[in-house]
Design a protein around this nucleic acid. Structure first.
Length: 416
RNA sequence: GUGGAUGUAGCUCAAUGGUAGAGCCCCGGCUUGUGAUGCCGGUGGUUGUGGGUUCGAGUCCCAUCAUCCACCCCA
C-alpha cells in the first residue's frame, strides 16, 4: 500500500459515481447547445507550445509557469493544452473556414495546468467550451450568454450569479490603462506586494485584489467601464438591454478582469459561493483580435468555458442504474441454460446481472445488494420446463413464466 | 511557488511513551431452492515513507511524500 503506484498529483480518476454526474452534464450541454446551432468539435490535447505563447500570452501564469511542456523524440516543443480557445482558433484557420460563414463550435475535454491542487482546482480538469467565430454584434454576445444561462439553468444549479463587464478595445484601453496606472502609482505605498508586481505585469488585476487594505485604496479607482470609446459603449449598452429583454439576471462588475491576454470588450463570469475560493464555474468573453493574431483575416469571435468538475460538485449524487433482472442458477447442471436465459433477457432489452452460481442464499444476497427489480431463479425443474421462476423482489411474489413473458414483465415494470 | 491542517484495516474513527481496537463494508455459516432485520464466525495493518530520541514510538523530534484548505492564479 505504501509503495502502491498512485495517479499523478492533482490528476484524479473518474470513478462511476463521478462519471454519472459528468455524463449528465455533458448530455444537458449537448442538448442545449444544439438548440443554439452549435456543433461539437474534438481537438488535439497536444499542441505546439508556440500556439499558447502567442495566443494566451507569454506573460500569463498559465503559459509562463503552468504548462506541461516538453520536447518530444523528434525535438518538437509541444505541450498539453492548458485551455481550449487557442486550439479552436488554430483549427478554424487550418481548416480554411474563414470564408465559410459563422462557425458555432463546442467541445468537451481535458485541459492541463500544473498548479497547486485545491478544492475545485485540478491539474487535469475538463472544460465544456463554446466558441463562435465571425460574429461581432452585441446580439451574439447576448445569445451566447443566454446559452450559458440556459445550460446552467437546465442543470438545475441554484444560486449562481452572472457578472459582466467590458474590457474595452485597442482604441480605448491603452488610455484607460495609463490613467489607472497613474492612480495606482499615487497610492503605491499602501498597496500589497503582489499588487506591485501586478502593476508591471497586468495593472487591471490590481482591481480585484482580495487584500482588504488594497481594496480600501481602490474605492474611487477609475474603471474601464467609465472610459469606453463610443463603439464599445454602445456595444455594451445593447448587450445589457438584451440581457434585460431575456430576463437573464446579471450584475455589472467593473472589477472583472480576465487573465488571458486575448479578451476584449465583453467579459463575464458565472460564480457560485459554494466552492470556496474557486467559485468561478463558467467564464468567457470576446476575443476579436485573436484570429488575426494567429495569421488569419480579421475575425471577431466570442466564447466561454465551464469547468466540468466544478459543476459536478454542485450536483447531487446520481443514483446508479439498477438491474432489471438478476439471474440465479441453482446447481452446475443448469449453468449453461442460465447463461442462455441471461443472454435472451438482454437481447430482449433488459439490464441483467448474472449472480455466478453458488448457494441460493449467496446469490439472493447479491441480487439484493445490486437492487435488482426481479430475480430469475433457474434450477433443474425450470430447465426441463423451458421456463424460469420470476420473483418480484419488492412484493416477494414469484411465478413460473417463459423468457418472453419475463421480458414483457420486466419492461412494463421498469418502463414507468 | 508560499503558508496552515491532516495521514492508523477497503471506509469512518479509537488507542495516559508499555501486547494496535471498534463500527460499517467484504467473505462464510445459522440443516443444503429464496434476499433486506437478527445471531455466530472469518479475512484484512511493517500505524504514509525514511531517519532520530528512548530499555521501549501509532504516540516525542527532523525530513520527505500525499491529501485537504488558503494565498497566487483560474474553469
Amino acid at each position: 500500500m505504501s509503495e502502491q503506484l498512485r495517479s499523478i498529483r492533482g490528476i484524479h480518476d473518474g470513478l462511476p459515481a463521478e462519471v454519472r454526474r459528468w455524463r449528465y452534464i455533458e448530455e444537458v450541454a449537448q442538448g442545449v447547445f444544439a438548440r443554439y446551432g452549435f456543433c461539437e468539435v474534438r481537438l488535439p490535447v497536444l499542441e505546439p507550445t508556440a500556439l499558447f505563447v502567442r495566443s494566451v500570452g507569454s506573460n500569463t501564469d498559465i503559459v509562463s509557469k503552468e504548462m506541461y511542456r516538453f520536447e518530444d523524440q523528434g525535438g518538437d516543443d509541444i505541450c498539453l493544452r492548458p485551455e481550449g480557445t487557442a486550439g479552436s482558433v488554430r483549427a478554424y484557420l487550418q481548416a480554411g473556414l474563414t470564408r465559410s460563414g459563422a462557425q458555432r463550435w463546442f467541445y468537451i475535454g481535458p485541459m492541463f495546468r500544473r498548479e497547486r491542487p485545491q478544492k475545485g482546482r485540478l491539474r487535469q480538469f475538463q472544460q465544456i467550451g463554446a466558441e463562435w467565430f465571425g460574429v461581432s454584434g452585441p446580439a451574439e454576445d447576448v445569445e451566447i450568454l443566454a446559452m450559458a444561462h440556459a445550460f446552467l439553468d437546465e442543470l438545475g444549479i441554484a444560486d449562481l450569479t452572472l457578472e459582466i463587464n467590458s474590457l474595452g478595445c485597442p482604441a480605448c484601453r491603452p488610455a484607460y490603462r495609463d490613467k489607472l496606472l497613474a492612480f495606482l502609482k499615487q497610492r503605491s505605498d499602501d498597496l500589497c506586494g503582489t499588487c506591485h508586481t501586478r502593476m508591471d505585469t497586468n495593472p487591471l488585476r490590481v482591481l480585484d485584489c482580495k487584500t482588504a487594505s488594497c481594496q480600501a485604496q481602490l474605492n474611487d479607482a477609475p474603471e474601464m467601464i467609465a472610459h469606453l470609446c463610443a463603439d464599445c459603449q454602445s456595444h455594451f449598452d445593447t448587450l445589457i438591454s438584451g440581457l434585460q429583454a431575456l430576463d437573464i439576471p446579471h450584475r455589472i462588475n467593473p472589477r472583472i478582469v480576465r487573465g488571458l491576454d486575448y479578451y476584449n470588450r465583453t467579459a463575464f463570469e458565472i460564480i457560485t459561493g459554494k466552492l470556496g475560493a474557486q467559485g468561478t464555474v463558467l467564464a468567457g468573453g470576446r476575443y476579436d483580435g485573436l484570429v488575426e493574431e494567429q495569421g488569419g483575416p480579421p475575425t471577431p469571435a466570442i466564447g466561454f468555458a465551464a469547468g466540468l468538475e466544478r459543476l459536478a460538485m454542485l450536483l447531487p449524487e446520481i443514483a446508479d442504474t439498477q438491474a432489471d433482472v438478476a439471474v440465479i442458477a441453482l446447481g452446475d447442471a443448469v449453468s449453461a441454460y442460465a447463461l442462455k436465459i441471461a443472454d435472451q433477457l438482454r437481447r430482449g432489452g433488459c439490464r441483467v446481472i448474472h449472480c455466478g452460481g453458488g448457494s441460493a442464499k449467496r446469490q439472493f444476497k447479491l441480487a439484493d445488494r445490486e437492487r435488482a427489480r426481479f430475480v430469475a431463479v433457474i434450477g433443474e425443474d425450470e430447465m426441463h420446463a423451458a421456463s424460469l421462476r420470476l420473483k418480484d423482489m419488492q412484493s416477494g411474489e414469484q411465478v413460473d413464466v417463459s423468457v418472453q413473458t419475463a421480458i414483457a414483465q420486466c419492461r412494463s415494470m421498469t418502463a414507468s
